[in-house]
């Protein structure tokens, strides 16, 4: 049973990353109509940012948790202003191709300087060690990642579904022209939205650094799994993205315990099953 709980925890952690990343993809797609293929590369940049902060400037985990998402978010906003904005009005597939190119560039540059091996990033002192919960031993850092990710996901949900800013965002997703004709600077909102989505990816990267190490290709395979999560959950609903992300992480964790050979593929297999049973995805909005 200990091993089962341990795998469940691993599943919840992966689920946290799936949720944070697919949430960002959904928000970005809503406003920009772009499937952000660079999302994995920006997640990796978040982790590297934390690594640089620590090893170059001596800035630790807690400030990095704030600085890295903002720094990478600003980088994302520059990308949007200089490259992505030229895609307005073109087929959605061009956005995917352009961001794929951006991902290749970013990952290639990092691979050049850091190879493919992992760089260690230590767990902050405050979160070292573990707790005995009676039925399992819980490493504090892992528990922190799950709880904190959940809080961030719910805060993002609240921001989008329950605030005035979120109402602008939802309205602009539906009809950007009209929202702009009400006096709202929609291009600026688009830039900020991309920054927000990218910031969430970078935050996931920082959270992941002490667990998975910091590697140039850490986001490359992850983004493909997240795409499968997005196909399953759809990009129409914020809560849908969060729930699908966590649920698939848990299912993956269970698979690791019961049938480890399939743990790499279970999300993809589930995607196939969902497409066969309900082609529009679980939240039911068509492309």
């Amino acid at each position: 049973m200990q091993a089962l709980y341990a795998q469940l925890l691993v599943g919840l952690i992966n689920g946290s990353f799936y949720a944070l990343l697919s949430l960002g993809l959904a928000v970005i797609f809503g406003m920009l109509n772009i499937v952000n293929f660079a999302h994995g590369a920006l997640y990796m940049m978040g982790a590297f940012c934390a690594y640089f902060l620590l090893n170059i400037a001596g800035i630790g985990y807690w400030p990095a948790l704030v600085i890295a998402p903002i720094a990478v978010g600003i980088f994302g906003m520059l990308l949007e202003r200089t490259l992505l904005k030229w895609l307005a009005g073109l087929d959605h597939l061009y956005g995917m191709l352009l961001t794929f190119g951006i991902a290749l560039i970013v990952q290639g540059v990092f691979q050049n300087y850091f190879g493919s091996s992992g760089l260690p990033y230590a767990i902050p002192d405050e979160l070292k060690g573990g707790m005995n919960l009676g039925f399992m031993f819980l490493p504090v850092y892992r528990g922190w990642v799950v709880v904190f990710s959940l809080v961030v996901c719910l805060a993002t949900w609240f921001l989008i579904e329950r605030t005035r800013l979120g109402a602008y965002l939802r309205a602009a997703t539906e009809n950007p022209t009209l929202v702009r004709a009400f006096g709202i600077n929609v291009p600026r909102m688009i830039t900020l939205t991309y920054g927000l989505g990218v910031g969430l990816a970078a935050l996931a990267g920082v959270l992941s650094a002490p667990i998975n190490q910091v590697r140039p290709l850490m986001g490359a395979d992850l983004i493909i799994v997240v795409f499968a999560v997005v196909v399953i959950g759809g990009m129409g609903s914020i809560m849908g993205s969060i729930i699908t992300g966590f649920a698939l992480g848990v299912i993956e964790g269970l698979t690791k315990y019961f049938y480890p050979e399939a743990s790499n593929t279970v999300v993809f297999v589930l995607m196939v099953l969902v497409l066969l049973v309900k082609p529009t995805g679980l939240t039911g909005r068509a492309a």
Partner: peptide, 16 residues
């Protein structure tokens, strides 16, 4: 141009 993802209050309060 009523927004379907906004309720009536949000629609009403949307234009700044």
């Amino acid at each position: 141009g009523i927004f379907s993802s906004l309720d009536v209050r949000e629609n009403l309060l949307l234009p700044p």
